[in-house]
């Protein structure tokens, strides 16, 4: 009955800002009939799931559709979630599978050549940003830099891309990623390191 309480947040012990207890606690209550608590659970993760998936599939629009499917799957499979592990690990595994499925289905029509258009604001770069307190120039620099990074990430090989976005847009720890990908922790660190080296090369000159 009394399982050891798992860490409730990447920053251990930090209470959730919605005041509703840990993810595990929410899941337990949803499964015992308080289904309306699914809404706060979605609220906790929707931004990170969309950001992660958008960068995995290279389209924010597709990511929004996929996010609906992902949360539907999560809801339907909630009984199978093992509360010994972090909820985010489980959620992002479902999200990653959905993204990869989507890429596989879509591959034939993404192969056509795309002419890089520096003016283009479509795809992953057209995201809603929340950056209060920046002066207009700061904001512009931020947008430009964000677009450069988005583009570089979108061009990474799938495996690197997934690891980078899990870490930086999904907010998962190395340990969570290791569990999610069934990889040794050292391998995760090593691959993330190499992914950043590739990013660095591609972004040379952009980040000054």
């Amino acid at each position: 009955m009394t399982e050891p309480a798992p860490p409730i947040h990447p920053v251990a012990g930090r209470p959730e800002p919605d005041g509703l207890g840990s993810d595990q606690e929410l899941v337990r209550r949803i499964l015992t009939g308080e289904e309306s608590l699914f809404a706060p659970l979605v609220r906790r993760y929707q931004a990170r799931v969309v950001a992660h998936v958008a960068r995995m599939v290279g389209s924010r629009e597709d990511a929004l559709d996929l996010a609906q499917e992902i949360f539907l799957k999560v809801f339907q499979a909630l009984e199978r979630y093992n509360p010994e592990y972090k909820f985010s690990t489980w959620l992002f595994r479902i999200a990653g599978n959905a993204a990869i499925d989507h890429l596989r289905k879509r591959r034939p029509r993404t192969v056509p050549l795309e002419i890089p258009d520096p003016e283009s604001r479509t795809g992953v770069s057209a995201v809603e940003h929340e950056s209060p307190g920046l002066d207009p120039f700061g904001r512009l620099r931020n947008v430009q830099r964000g677009e450069a990074i988005s583009k570089a990430i979108a061009e990474l090989p799938l495996e690197f891309r997934e690891l980078i976005t899990l870490r930086h847009f999904g907010g998962l720890s190395y340990e969570e990623i290791a569990r999610l990908k069934n990889m040794p922790l050292g391998t995760v660190k090593n691959k993330l390191f190499r992914a950043r080296v590739v990013l660095k090369e591609r972004l040379a000159g952009e980040l000054s």
């Binding site: 929707q46 931004a47 799931v49 969309v50 950001a51 929004l64 996010a67 995201v127 809603e128 940003h129 929340e130 950056s131 931020n142 830099r145 964000g146 990074i149 980078i164 930086h168 847009f169």
Partner: peptide
């Protein structure tokens, strides 16, 4: 990457 603005759903 950390300094990128946070995105909203």
């Amino acid at each position: 990457l950390k300094e990128l603005p946070r995105e909203r759903a």
